[in-house]
């Protein structure tokens, strides 16, 4: 378990960022402990990428509206070379060869002796055969792994990954997941934004959720789940054709196909819920649990997260 006493590597204090009339980030404060994996979650357009870009100094906070300290520096321009960045949209020169491109990105970060590291990373991510091929000959997954290498090739102290797993098949997602964990083991701090709640639960020491530009969750996964208590029941009912919304004491139902997640109203006796369920069919699974991160997300973001819900519902059955 990660120690929360680690010094912060990123400190954001009361930062606001406005585009025209739209306030993308509103009075945001945040502290990312050094050596942690810090997950940014939130619906589309909630301000995740804007916050990450401000940490990268691609965007700047509104004048006088808060400050950002990275690696202990207020004006962290000099720290840019100690940060790795994987943007949400992948940016690779299509006509450059893989090794050539990685050398270029490494040199931009001030790393001039990167060739052994490039060979090592290509080997680890199973791309050695493609080292001298042009980017436009790579598959999407391969290109994404190349982009990941470009973000870490200069051995940064802080790595910012914006949606690193989107569009990856499970095998490649696992390869990248292992690489992220290895970065943490070597002392690198990782901030990553994701819509994949499962990945956030599995990888993150801390989770931060932003909604309509404002912080709505921030803390360890454990502490966040504890604040919501054990108000969730996962059930499997054979031959169930009964609408579980009508069960007394059930506030909300998330249907994962062969598994349903019920949110129970406060002061409801779960035994009564079980009894009601048994009347509808044979109950093969009944588990009292804390809400999943996915459920917490949906509770906060509500209908605005429908697009993300659809994504998540296609992923959840595989873990049930």
């Amino acid at each position: 378990m990660f120690m929360t006493t680690s010094p912060p590597i990123v400190e954001i204090e009361g930062v606001t960022k406005t585009f025209g009339q739209h306030r993308a980030v509103d009075d945001l404060s945040l502290s990312v402990p050094s050596g942690s994996i810090y997950g940014f979650i939130g619906p589309n357009g909630s301000g995740k990428t804007t916050t990450l870009r401000m940490i990268m100094r691609i965007y700047f906070p509104d004048p006088g509206a808060g400050k950002i300290r990275v690696l202990g520096m207020d004006d962290h321009a000099a720290a840019t070379d100690r940060i790795g960045y994987l943007p949400e949209e992948r940016g690779l020169y299509k006509k450059m060869k893989v090794r050539e491109l990685l050398c270029f990105y490494a040199e931009l970060k001030g790393c001039t002796t990167s060739k052994p590291e490039i060979a090592d990373w290509l080997e680890r991510l199973e791309l050695s055969k493609w080292a001298d091929k042009k980017i436009d000959t790579l598959s999407k997954g391969m290109a994404q792994k190349v982009q990941f290498i470009s973000a870490v090739i200069h051995k940064p102290e802080l790595v910012i990954l914006d949606e690193p797993f989107s569009g990856l098949d499970p095998v490649n997602a696992n390869v990248l997941r292992d690489a992220v964990l290895e970065l943490r083991r070597s002392g690198t701090t990782v901030i990553f934004s994701t819509h994949d709640m499962r990945a956030a639960e599995e990888l993150c020491d801390f989770v931060f959720m932003i909604f309509r530009g404002q912080k709505v969750l921030d803390g360890s996964l454990e502490s966040i789940k504890n604040t919501y208590g054990k108000d969730t029941v996962r059930v499997q009912v054979e031959g169930n054709s009964f609408d579980l919304h009508h069960v007394t004491g059930v506030e909300a139902v998330t249907d994962f196909g062969h598994l349903q997640e019920l949110r129970i109203a406060e002061n409801t006796d779960t035994q009564q819920v079980l009894e009601s369920l048994m009347k509808t069919g044979r109950v093969t699974h009944f588990e009292l649990t804390r809400p999943s991160l996915h459920d917490i997300f949906v509770r906060i973001a509500g209908p605005e997260a429908t697009e993300m819900q659809a994504d998540a519902s296609t992923q959840e059955p595989s873990r049930a």
Binding site: I58, A77, T80, Y85, P87, E89, G91, Y93, Y105
Partner: peptide, 17 residues
């Protein structure tokens, strides 16, 4: 235009003003 539309610019701007 290529750097802008292929989102290469964002990667570059993470390293250079």
């Amino acid at each position: 235009l290529e750097e802008k539309m292929q989102r290469i610019a964002e990667v570059l701007l993470g390293s250079i003003p």
